[in-house]
Design a binder for these strands. Sequence first.
DNA 1: CCATCGTCGATTGTTGACAATCCTGCCCCG
DNA 2: CGGGGCAGGATTGTCAACAATCGACGATGG
Lengths: 235, 235
Amino acid sequence: MAVSDLLDPVPKSTLRAHVAERLRTAILAGDIPPGAPLVETVLSQRFDVSRGPLREALRQLIEEGLVVTVPYTGTHVASLSVEDVQEIYSLRTALETFAFEQVWPRRDDRFRTDLRRRNDALLATIDAGDDRASISTELEFHGLVYEASGHRLLQRAWHGLRGRLQLYWAAHHRAHGMRGPKRDSHDSYIAAALGDDLAAMRREIADHMRRGVETTERFLRSLPSISGKKRGDIT
Amino acid sequence: MAVSDLLDPVPKSTLRAHVAERLRTAILAGDIPPGAPLVETVLSQRFDVSRGPLREALRQLIEEGLVVTVPYTGTHVASLSVEDVQEIYSLRTALETFAFEQVWPRRDDRFRTDLRRRNDALLATIDAGDDRASISTELEFHGLVYEASGHRLLQRAWHGLRGRLQLYWAAHHRAHGMRGPKRDSHDSYIAAALGDDLAAMRREIADHMRRGVETTERFLRSLPSISGKKRGDIT
DNA sequence: CCATCGTCGATTGTTGACAATCCTGCCCCG
DNA sequence: CGGGGCAGGATTGTCAACAATCGACGATGG
């Protein structure tokens, strides 16, 4: 939240934007777990807005993959299958590699200090034992390279992946006590990111993602199953 | 349209979906050129629906990057800058490369025949001199690898890129008589796609995209300018 | 003549009521 | 006792009216 966009003329807020923000925060924090129903009338009363803006906020969250709906039937928080998480990580590998290729020749001092700074922030939340915050700072850390790329479409794609990832992490952290990121998980990653060997960086990214998906599989496969299959969004 | 999703229980249509479909088609066909205003009341009368569903359809098109809106002020068809098109092509290079990596070991007979079939369809529209249709069949051709990947998130990303690309192509074809794809543009591409050298395929993709962005730059830079800067979507 | 401020038309934002659809559980019939 | 169909409640889909905001035009004063 401290990063995102840097200098909009003025936020020029609408109700829909506020509602979407609040809902997204609630979902990503795990306050509304995957599979939970999102009834428009209930939410509209709760937020004290009409159903119009609320519906539009829901549409946006649907586009972000955080919510699924089936016409005339119901809306609920998305729940990710193992395949979903695998897809997230595999695509993220491609995107993050691409991001580093874009940034590679343009890594200035600002980038280097920002990278260290965000890692420090991550370490701080880890040391504080705040798993929920660690999830956010971890993603902020990785978000740097996307922002530094200056590639708006790429940032957009990352935004979509990050939301899904955060949904998955937050939900499983909450529901099954899954631990947040480890303290040394980025040591070699940072070293490669600041070094001169792009191929090494590629390997580092692939490794990082492989670890992520392995943790995921262990976790999801060890559970009875949270909610069966889920088909694509219907809108 | 003949491909997309394979076996949904039933399309279960809503007004919003129909309106979005119609509007998207109109925009991508170039019937509503970039920069043209999209007034909700006018469109709702025209489609004979209320503003509710129409607004939600617009939100969807906004997410797809085909439309931009500024709160309380107005909505209009997006117009792409040179930087936008460069971003589309650079990201597409990364995605299409990733898609081929996914598909590479699993290229069965069906994939090979489909590839040839879609190329034949492309050649047919080119020979018929139908530039507008050529744009669609060209994108259908490239869409195969994304579909064959079975990677839903990747398909989603491709969908977003394809829409923007089609918007750009259609608009400039209509406005400035830009020619559609050339007849032999895919010869080496197909050869590599059916061959055994993945590195060659990577080069082929990069080449194809480079040609695309070069054509684009020649075109856009030779024009006075269609519409100045454009800021990010505001929602 | 120019700058500033107020007013006005246009456009989107928001609301509450009404209609269409779906799922659930019950009842009736075989 | 089992299965098909039929209400009933719940939920989303749709609509038309009202409010908030914006950009531009013109009046007004210097």
